[in-house]
C-alpha cells in the first residue's frame, strides 16, 4: 500500500531513537532509569522486528487458521474450548505453536533457541 510519507521510514525513525538510547541514555544513567532505558531499547527493537517480519507473519497466520477452517483467533479459541477440535488436537497444537514461534521471533528471538531441546 502506497504511503504519502517521506524518508525516514517508520522503522528507520524507531531505529534512530533506539540508537540514541543505546549510545547516550544507557551510558549516562544508572540504576532504575538505566534499567528502564534497557527495557525501552528492547521494546523498540521488538517493534523494528515486527515491522520487518509482520507482513509475512500475518499471511502465514491466516494460512494456518484456514487449514483449520477458522477466520481468526477468536473463532479458533472458541472451537478449542467447545471441544470441536478434540479429534485434531495434535494438529491444532502444531499449528498454534508455529504462530507462537512467530510471536517469539518478534518479541524475544533468543528465547526458543538455547534450550529448545531440553
Amino acid at each position: 500500500m502506497a504511503m504519502p510519507h517521506d524518508v525516514p521510514t517508520a522503522a528507520q525513525l524507531i531505529e534512530s531513537v533506539r540508537e540514541w538510547l543505546e549510545k547516550d541514555v544507557l551510558t549516562s544513567t544508572t540504576g532504575r532509569v538505566q534499567f528502564h532505558s534497557r527495557v525501552a531499547i528492547n521494546v523498540l527493537a521488538m517493534v523494528e522486528r515486527e515491522l520487518a517480519m509482520g507482513g509475512q507473519q500475518a499471511l502465514d497466520h491466516a494460512a494456518r487458521l484456514a487449514i483449520l477452517g477458522m477466520k481468526d483467533d477468536a473463532e479458533l479459541a472458541t472451537a478449542i474450548r467447545n471441544g470441536d477440535l478434540d479429534d485434531r488436537f495434535q494438529e491444532v497444537v502444531d499449528l498454534v505453536r508455529a504462530s507462537v514461534l512467530d510471536k517469539l521471533a518478534v518479541a524475544n528471538p533468543s528465547y526458543a533457541l538455547p534450550t529448545s531441546n531440553d
Binding site: 483467533d73 479459541a77 478449542i80 488436537f89
Partner: peptide, 13 residues
C-alpha cells in the same frame, strides 16, 4: 479484546 488459542489448548488439556 483478544483471544488466546494456546491458553484454550492448555485449559482443554
Amino acid at each position: 479484546g483478544q483471544a488466546h488459542p494456546t491458553f484454550e489448548l492448555a485449559f482443554r488439556w
